[in-house]
């Protein structure tokens, strides 16, 4: 002759469990369908790399490969080529013809940012690189390069002679007065 109490004890924690399920059933979920959806990151988060442009649409990257040299995990591959005024990609004589980052290798240390003489490469808190294939995780230049600012032509551009002679603009002079 089993009592209600007996039955409940035989059921063990099942009703308690169901109660928890029922309780959280209507609560807003905390999980995110990553990678389709990504949580907003803090402003200081170092997300994936972006190749920046100047306001006139020219690429900041000059293909110097110092990022590749600084990269501790050898994730960056750069091939350079020569600019000319009819087909200009960046100020100065040299631009990156090929720019690839293997996001599987990258450890997001930001050394590439530090090495860049033109601040062309920035790790930004936009989205985190994800993918389903190894090939897809090698980000090529068209993926990395940010779009030209609104109303400005992208690259290559035809530019007037003599205007973009130099690849690197000087830093403001250092005050050495005592």
């Amino acid at each position: 002759m089993s009592s209600v109490r007996d039955i409940l004890s035989r059921l063990g924690g099942i009703p308690v469990g169901f109660a928890t399920v029922f309780k959280t059933f209507f609560r807003k979920p905390v999980t995110v369908q990553y990678p389709e959806k990504q949580k907003p990151m803090s402003a200081r988060f170092r997300g994936r790399h972006h190749l920046k442009r100047y306001d006139d649409g020219l690429e900041k990257c000059i293909g110097c490969a110092l990022c590749a040299a600084a990269c501790p995990s050898d994730a960056i591959y750069v091939e350079a080529a020569e600019n000319n005024n009819d087909k200009r990609f960046s100020p100065g004589e040299r631009y990156a013809k090929t720019y690839e980052i293997n996001m599987l290798r990258c450890i997001f240390c930001g050394y590439c940012e530090d090495a860049c003489p033109t601040n062309a490469i920035i790790l930004e808190p936009i989205e985190f690189p994800t993918g389903y294939t190894r090939e897809g995780m090698i980000y090529t230049k068209d993926k990395l390069l940010e779009p030209a600012p609104a109303g400005v032509q992208g690259t290559p551009q035809a530019t007037p002679a003599g205007k973009f002679e130099r690849a690197i603009l000087p830093f403001p002079p250092i005050d050495v007065s005592v």
Partner: peptide, 11 residues
């Protein structure tokens, strides 16, 4: 001397 080291072949 110009600040060319990053793009200079000799760099």
């Amino acid at each position: 001397h110009p600040l060319d080291c990053p793009i200079c072949d000799k760099g």
